[in-house]
Every structure is written in structure tokens, then in C-alpha cells.
């Protein structure tokens, strides 16, 4: 069986595993959903009202029945109803996911536009001062946690320019692209920093490996100019691992950046799940984690397929 097909067959199995895992994990959190939903007012509930609420959210059944009902619902495209929002989980996900997606795309754009040229430049100038500077900056970028980058950016802006990042109500990009970008640019830079650093390091190291290859030396000895060898022969091959790295990183970002969303007060997917966990909103946690895991696995599958398609030397061994 070829590798991608094997991956496709394993896919539903892993999704089921994720579903079971999150279903059990969220129910192990102490406290019950009805109390968490109503806070102190839950004390005013009569036992009949409490039972009615439990029945409404399907919480009166045992775990197996709950899981089965949920699973059947999921397969029909129904992720259940959130106890905190009182809305279908799927609606809540679609409200928060565009922001997360936009943030992931912006961060990746920033990382690639800075990372690839800087990596090539460093490799072409190996061991010269310019290479050392790029490596130094990349190492620092990779070593600074993104929420620290975010805090430092907020500080530098407020002290240096006397401005605070736009933290009002979030404006979706379709309503007002400029206002949206003003809100998104700082978080995107924040997440893009470590991402760019990783891209720089990957581009540089694969570029250096490839510049030692025989075919590069052949091209050079034919009298092909160095610049052309780098762009024509080395770069396309050097980019393959960079694409893999970016894909995996992008997959992670689609899961939401809890800390950065928290710092910039963005209503993304990460914070939604964080709050859902704290509120014991079973359906919302289950639905959104399943959604995040699904995206993550799809992105990884696509990355693998792209990897095979881009490099004719790679053919997945069939076992």
C-alpha cells in the first residue's frame, strides 16, 4: 500500500482517538457544566429545572450514550450546543476560525518573505560577518517565546511611539480591511518572528548542504555564474524542507495561539477553547478540539503529499 493511502486510512482512526480522548478528558474536569454555565445563579435552580437543563444538553445520560449521540451528531455535521453561548458549536467555530486563519496566513507570509531571502543571503555569505549577524538574529528570534515578543512589542510601541495596539472590538476583514489589519499586524509580527527565525535557519542549512552537491559543482565548473547556480539549481531543492517546515508550523497556528490571542485580546480559536475548558463547556471543547485536530492532520497530510510531488527523488516506500 502506498504511503499516502495508508495515511488516509489511518486518518479516521486517529480522529476517533482524538474524539474519545477529549470526551473523557473534559469530563474528568471537576465540577459540572450546568453550575459553570449559570455561576452563582445555579443555586437558585430547582432540581426539576436542573434536570430539564441536563436533559436539554443531553447530560443526563451515561457517558457511553452521550458519546454515541455526540459521535452520530458529528458524523451528520452537528457538533452539539454550547452551554456557555447557547448556540450550536459549529456556529461558534465559524465565528472564531476566520481570525485564526487570517493570523496564521499573515504570520506565514511574514515568515517566508523575511526568512527565505535572509536564509539564502546567509548561506551565500557563509562565515562572513553578514552570515554571523543573520545567524545571531535567527537564534535570538527562535529563542524568544512568542508571548514575550508580543509583550515587548506592546511595550516598545507604547513607550517609543505613545500608541497602544488597537484592542477595541475586533473588526472582521470583510467589514473593514484597514481597521482589521491595524489590529492584526502586531499579533502577526509576534507569531511571525519565531516562525521567520525557523525558516531562516532551515533555508540556510539546506542551502549549504545543497551547495556542496556534485551537480552544483558541475554547474559551476561549466562556467555558470554563481548567482544563477544559486537561484536556478540550488534554491528549488533547498525550498522543499522549508515548505515542509512552514506547512507543519501553519498547521500548529491553525489551532489558535492561546497566549498571543490573550495578550492582544483577539477572539480567536485558541482563547475560545481556553475559555470553554475553564467553563466546562463540554460540547464546545469537544467540537473545537476535534476541528483543530482535523485541520492539523489535513495540513500535515497535504505537506507530505506536496513533499513527494515536489521532489521526484522521494518516493514513499511501500511496505
Amino acid at each position: 500500500m502506498s504511503y499516502p493511502i495508508k495515511r488516509l486510512l489511518v486518518f479516521p482512526l486517529v480522529m476517533l482517538g482524538v474524539a474519545i480522548f477529549v470526551f473523557i478528558a473534559i469530563r474528568l474536569v471537576p465540577g459540572d457544566a450546568i453550575t459553570a454555565m449559570l455561576g452563582t445563579e445555579s443555586g437558585l435552580l430547582t432540581s426539576a429545572q436542573r434536570e430539564a437543563l441536563s436533559a436539554y444538553f443531553g447530560l443526563d445520560q451515561n457517558w457511553f450514550v452521550q458519546f454515541w449521540r455526540w459521535l452520530v451528531g458529528v458524523l451528520q455535521g452537528n457538533l452539539g450546543i454550547s452551554t456557555t453561548y447557547g448556540k450550536p458549536v459549529i456556529t461558534i467555530i465559524w465565528e472564531h476560525f476566520p481570525l485564526t486563519l487570517e493570523l496564521a496566513v499573515l504570520s506565514m507570509l511574514i515568515a517566508l518573505t523575511i526568512g527565505i531571502p535572509a536564509g539564502i543571503y546567509a548561506a551565500a555569505n557563509k562565515d562572513r560577518p553578514s552570515d554571523l549577524i543573520v545567524r545571531f538574529v535567527a537564534m535570538f528570534g527562535q529563542s524568544t517565546p512568542s508571548f514575550v515578543v508580543g509583550l515587548l512589542l506592546v511595550y516598545l510601541l507604547s513607550v517609543g511611539f505613545g500608541v497602544l495596539p488597537e484592542m477595541g472590538t475586533f473588526v472582521p476583514i470583510i467589514e473593514d480591511p484597514l481597521a482589521n489589519l491595524a489590529q492584526m499586524i502586531l499579533p502577526a509580527i509576534t507569531l511571525g518572528t519565531a516562525f521567520a527565525a525557523a525558516v531562516i535557519r532551515m533555508t540556510r542549512s539546506t542551502m549549504l548542504d545543497i551547495l556542496q552537491e556534485d551537480y552544483v559543482r558541475t554547474a559551476r565548473s561549466k562556467g555558470m555564474p554563481r548567482r544563477r547556480v544559486i537561484w536556478r539549481h540550488a534554491l528549488p531543492n533547498a525550498l522543499i524542507p522549508v515548505i515542509t517546515l512552514s506547512g507543519v508550523e501553519f498547521g500548529y497556528l491553525l489551532g489558535g495561539a492561546v497566549l498571543v490571542e490573550q495578550i492582544f485580546a483577539l477572539p480567536g480559536l485558541g482563547r475560545t477553547v481556553l475559555n470553554a475548558i475553564l467553563q466546562r463547556d463540554y460540547a464546545l471543547v469537544q467540537g473545537s478540539v476535534l476541528f483543530i485536530a482535523f485541520n492539523f492532520m489535513i495540513v500535515n497530510l497535504l505537506v507530505d503529499l506536496a513533499y513527494a510531488a515536489l521532489d521526484p527523488r522521494i518516493r514513499f516506500e511501500s511496505k
Binding site: 477529549v22 492561546v258 477553547v273 478540539v289 485536530a293
Partner: peptide, 14 residues
């Protein structure tokens, strides 16, 4: 694979 499909920080939070 199941554990890896979870975002790291969310798994830790849970």
C-alpha cells in the same frame, strides 16, 4: 498520533 494532533498548550491546559 492522537496526542500530536492536539495543540501542545491546549493539551497541557486540559
Amino acid at each position: 498520533d492522537v496526542l500530536l494532533a492536539f495543540p501542545a498548550i491546549l493539551l497541557a491546559l486540559l
